[in-house]
Computed example of a mutant assay.
Amino acid sequence: MELYDLVELRHAIPEENLPAGAVGTIVHVFHRPELAYEVEFTDEEGRTLSSVALTPDEIRQRP
């Protein structure tokens, strides 16, 4: 996965009010200490709802 790819959550993140399947955009890629992605989730009008650092096993790339 790369910067600006669309991804979806494999599992809900209740503390961020994000359901499983929520779609977000990768806005940063961390390579250290381990691979992770900062994913931004927005509403229909483009307002940021949440920005969360996630590991590759927590998301899947959207086609």
Results as ranks from 00 to 15, higher is better:
43 D>C: 09
34 E>R: 14
9 L>N: 01
60 R>H: 13
17 N>Y: 08
9 L>T: 04
36 A>K: 05
39 V>L: 02
41 F>N: 00
50 S>V: 02
39 V>S: 01
25 T>E: 07
59 I>T: 01
42 T>P: 01
20 A>E: 14
3 L>W: 00
34 E>I: 11
5 D>Q: 02
27 V>P: 03
49 L>V: 08
42 T>K: 05
14 P>D: 14
38 E>N: 03
21 G>V: 04
3 L>A: 08
36 A>Y: 03
61 Q>E: 13
62 R>A: 01
12 A>G: 15
5 D>V: 00
48 T>F: 02
8 E>S: 09
10 R>C: 06
12 A>H: 07
37 Y>H: 12
28 H>S: 09
23 V>Q: 02
35 L>S: 01
52 V>Q: 08
33 P>F: 12
50 S>N: 13
63 P>E: 13
57 D>A: 11
38 E>V: 00
8 E>D: 05
15 E>R: 15
45 E>I: 09
45 E>S: 08
57 D>L: 07
9 L>C: 06
50 S>Q: 14
12 A>Y: 06
54 L>N: 05
22 A>E: 12
53 A>C: 14
36 A>R: 07
18 L>I: 08
22 A>W: 01
53 A>L: 15
29 V>N: 07
60 R>T: 09
27 V>R: 10
51 S>Y: 03
45 E>A: 11
50 S>D: 13
23 V>R: 00
23 V>F: 02
28 H>N: 10
52 V>K: 04
56 P>V: 09
15 E>K: 15
2 E>I: 02
63 P>G: 14
54 L>F: 00
4 Y>W: 10
41 F>V: 04
21 G>Q: 10
52 V>W: 07
20 A>Q: 10
44 E>T: 10
